[in-house]
Structures are given as C-alpha cells and as structure tokens.
C-alpha cells in the first residue's frame, strides 16, 4: 500500500467534510478497496472510514419500502431481512464469506459497482432508489457500466430504498475461484410488474433483461421464458467461461430464480 492517513468520523457531516479533500476516498467495509490498495492500484492521500457512522447503519420498513443504511453490512442484511425480504436476505447471505459479510456494506458494494457484484442485480430488478447525502437516484440511472456510477466525487450512499416485492429470489452461478457470480439473476415479482436484474455477465455491467420481464409480467412461470435467450455478444468471456456460456446461464439462472421465487 501507499501511505495515507485514515480518519474515522462518527457523523455523516464530518465524513463529508473530510471527503471534500480531492485526494480523499471513502472506505466502507473495505473488502474490495483494501485488496485494491494492497496492489497499489489506488493512491488516496486519506481514507475516510465510514464504519463508525451510526446514522448510516440499520434497516427500517415503511409500508412496502425497505430502507437500508449504506453502512449496513451484508451479514446484518442477511439476518434482518430474512422475514421481510427473503430474496435480498438470500443474496446477502451468499456474498463472499462470513468474515467478509461482517465487514462489507451495501453502500460500498453499490458505490464500487463491480460487474460481478450481487446487489446491483437486486437494485435493478426491484427498481431501487440509491439515496446519497445530496439526492436520490433511480437504479436505472445509477449504474453506468463496469465500475461506473452516477456518484459524484465525495458523494456518499446513505441508504438504499427497495420496494419490497411480493416474491423474489436471487440465483448465483459462482465463478469457481472468486465465488463472485459468473452470472447472477435477481427476479422480483410485484403486483404490476416483474423485474429481472442480471449481474456478472455483461461487459456493460448489471442490466435488466427486459424481454424476460415482459414475458414474466404476463405469466410468472418458468414456461414464460421458453424461447427467450440473451445474445452472447457483449457478454464477458474469460478463463472461466465464454460469452456464449454466460448468455446461456442467464437463461438457466433466470428460470431457476423464477422457480425459487414462486
């Protein structure tokens, strides 16, 4: 790692003030950023650690909206949404490993927007709203390709609002080494629509499979997906699988997610 200072503010206001410095960078749970720093792939002069800010943590429900603080860990989400939003709990409970889940946060994951992160699939499928210190951003507008988001410098994700679906499920096909999704599909069924978010597969990052959403909107059953497929063009190809294989898995995982959500 390069040298840097570390600050541990306890309020959002202090964190924002610290991040006003150009070379400062926010540190969520650090489960992606710290390995990146070890490889000297980032060189902040200052890390602003968000884990001490209580106001960024916690889960609350208001009607059909579930609000999760940006500093809430995967482990907490897995435990506390198990009854109210089991699809999301299932997703959170399979991120990384138990120790990673005790540190990594939903805000950190969404801010990084790794093309193989899990939460973006849920956020897209559910039409979640990303809440920052200054505004609210619809998921469709938030994700802007691999590692790219609508966040401005120094902007912090304070919360994520999920409209809670009637039923949902996330099915992850794991890349055998990293256990990140080679393909992950989140299916969310609402009274008036179905959302299908796909992560891991596309070179453009997370996307909604709108054909599947339309088909499932009319008939929320695996059979509705018959004949539907995504193209292998634009899919990630690497030593773990070709684009064609990933495209195939999108179909399989979507079917399985529908089956699990029904």
């Amino acid at each position: 790692m390069y040298s840097f200072d570390i600050e541990r503010p306890t309020t959002l206001a202090d964190a924002l003030a610290a991040l006003a410095d150009d070379e400062a960078q926010a540190l969520g749970g650090g489960q992606t950023l710290i390995p990146t720093l070890k490889q000297r792939l980032a060189s902040p002069s200052k890390l602003v650690c968000l884990s001490g800010i209580e106001e960024l943590k916690g889960i609350s429900r208001d009607g059909d909206t579930l609000t999760i603080g940006g500093g809430t860990t995967h482990g907490t989400i897995a435990r506390e949404t198990a009854e109210g939003f089991p699809g999301l709990a299932g997703l959170a409970s399979k991120i990384g490993d138990p120790a990673v889940r005790n540190r990594g946060t939903i805000g950190g994951s969404l801010a990084n927007n790794d093309p193989s992160a899990c939460y973006p699939a849920a956020a897209m499928a559910c039409g979640a709203t990303i809440v920052t210190n200054s505004r609210e951003i619809a998921a469709d507008d938030y994700f802007q390709g691999m590692f790219a988001t609508a966040l401005e410098e120094g902007e912090i994700i304070t919360a994520v609002k999920f409209p809670v679906p009637e039923s949902s499920a996330y099915i992850k096909f794991e890349q055998p080494a990293s256990r990140f999704p080679l393909v992950g599909v989140f299916v969310a069924k609402y009274a008036d629509r179905v959302g299908v978010g796909v992560t891991g597969a596309s070179e453009e990052g997370v996307f909604r499979w709108t054909e599947a959403e339309a088909a499932l909107g009319g008939n929320f059953a695996e059979s509705a997906l018959e004949g539907l497929s995504v193209s292998g063009d634009g899919m990630i190809g690497d030593l773990h699988g070709t684009g064609a294989y990933r495209a195939h898995l999108v179909g399989v995982m979507t079917r399985r997610a529908v089956a699990a959500a029904r």
């Binding site: 055998p176 080494a177 990293s178 690497d238 030593l239 773990h240």
Partner: peptide
C-alpha cells in the same frame, strides 16, 4: 499469468 491470485485460481 491470468490465474494470478485466488480470484482466478480456484482452490
């Protein structure tokens, strides 16, 4: 080397 860490070398 493409499989240069445990991210790509499956233990």
């Amino acid at each position: 080397l493409l499989s240069a860490s445990y991210m790509d070398y499956a233990m």
